[in-house]
Amino acid sequence: MIEFLQQLGKNTRTGFTKLGRGTFFLLQIISGILSVLLRPRLLLNQMYSVGVLSFLIITISGLFVGMVLGLQGYYILSDFGAEETLGVMVAASLVRELGPVVSALLFAGRAGSALTAEIGLMKATEQLSGMEMMAVDPIKRIISPRFLAGLLSMPLLTALFSAVGIIGGQMVGSGLLGVDEGAYWSQMQAKLDFQDDIINGVIKSLVFGFVASWIALFEGYDAIPTSEGVSRATTRTVVNSAFSILGLDFILTALMFGDN
């Protein structure tokens, strides 16, 4: 019993210590962002590996998510004779929820895990301490550009996901199932608001990009410098990112869409 309590206390303490380290790390990243802006080449290289390489998985997933939404939505809506509102259903669910959340989860799986493994390996092979020896700040040189690239790529990826998904829903809805194409678009335009829906979706994706990149970089930087430690850190990145994204999504939805 005593041992159990001791273990519990120890785990709680390590948890808080880790959170504290993470917060301190975040402040270091943010203070390093300014020097990234002076060297845009670093940011560009990271935009390539974080953003461009996630492009394909995001667009293909978006297309299929949109097509499935179109198919499922049609079967349910046709029971009520309201097939014309298919566009509203597909667009609202993509722009408000599925776009930001699914693309953030894919981002954490595709780009986040790669970031953790890269930085964990840099630490394990002592490249980071080597940089410090040469008086190069690894936070400014390695971490901050990756963070900024993740933060900037996320809204773009989310917009692509939603746009491709809406087109996919239209392909299935009016191409395959015979929903009127004009009604699909016009109902959507009548019901969706730029401020309430699109901008809130972009805000969500910015928050998710912030959290996912932060977790991925911190887990890599904090990893035990062995091959096992790096593999564990990579797993933790995906699990923790998924938890944070889904939990934050609930809070953000409650704040943004609570009043209607």
Binding site: M47, G51, V52, S153, A159, I166, M188, Q189, F194
Partner: peptide, 22 residues
Amino acid sequence: FVGLFVASGIAGLFFLALQVSN
């Protein structure tokens, strides 16, 4: 590729703003 990626992302945002919302 980065240029194409950023351009297509912004095009997606424009699509959402103009074609999807009012």
